Simulated scan of single mutants.
Amino acid sequence: MPVRTDRQVADGLLPSPVPVRFVAEDGTAVEPPAGYPAPEDGRLLDAYRRMVTGRRFDRQATALTRQGRLAVYPSSRGQEACQIAGVLALRADDWLFPTYRDSVALVARGLDPVEVLTLLRGDWHCGYDPAAARVAPQCTPLATQTVHAVGMAEALRRKGEDAVVMAFVGDGGTSEGDFHEALNYAAVLNAPVVFLVQNNRYAISVPLAKQTAAPALAYKGIGYGVRSEQVDGNDLVAVLAVLDTAVRRAREGGGPFLVEAHTYRMDAHTNADDPTRYRPAGEVEEWESADPLARLEAYLRGRGLLGADGAAAAREAAEEFAARLRDAMSAEPATDPYEMFDHVFADPTPQLREQRDLLAAELAARED
Rank of each mutant, 00 (worst) to 15 (best):
R303A: 11
R50M: 05
Q355F: 06
T140H: 04
D6W: 14
Y185T: 02
D112P: 01
A191L: 08
R356K: 14
I84W: 03
D342Y: 10
V237M: 09
R121F: 12
R295Q: 11
S228H: 08
Q230D: 10
L208A: 11
P39S: 05
D94N: 09
Q138R: 10
L243F: 00
G110F: 09
R101K: 07
S330R: 13
I204V: 13
R248I: 00
R121T: 09
V9G: 00
P280V: 13
W124K: 10
V194C: 07
R249H: 15
S289D: 12
R324E: 14
L305W: 14
P15T: 05
G223N: 10
Q198H: 10
E115W: 02
L217I: 11
R59A: 15
H343Y: 15
A186I: 12
D162M: 02
L305G: 04
T174M: 07
L236C: 08
G307N: 12
F22Q: 06
L258K: 00
A216G: 15
G254R: 06
R50C: 04
A261H: 07
G255P: 12
L156R: 09
Q79V: 05
A308T: 14
V193M: 07
V231I: 08
T99V: 01
A281G: 11
G173R: 05
G170A: 01
G253L: 11
R50V: 03
E115Y: 06
R303E: 14
V147E: 04
P348Y: 13
W124F: 11
L88I: 06
R356C: 07
Y128Q: 05
F57M: 08
E362L: 10
R301Y: 02
T118Q: 05
Y224G: 07
P37K: 08
P130A: 02
G223M: 08
E316Y: 11
H125G: 11
P137K: 02
A312I: 10
A364S: 14
E286Y: 09
M51R: 04
V104W: 04
E229I: 03
D58Q: 01
D368G: 15
E319D: 15
P333S: 02
A187M: 12
D162I: 00
P39F: 09
Q351G: 10
T99R: 06
T144Q: 08
L208D: 07
E286N: 06
F97I: 01
F257I: 02
G302E: 13
P74A: 02
P275I: 05
N184D: 07
D102W: 05
R295I: 15
L325E: 11
V18T: 15
H125W: 13
D327L: 12
E283W: 06
E40Y: 00
M152G: 00
T146K: 02
R324L: 08
G160R: 07
W287D: 07
A346R: 14
I204G: 00
R43W: 00
A209M: 09
G86S: 06
P98L: 01
P17V: 09
L183H: 05
D235S: 05
E367G: 13
D347I: 07
Q211K: 09
A63T: 13
R277N: 12
C82T: 05
A298N: 13
D327T: 13
V87N: 04
C126D: 08
P348T: 08
A203S: 14
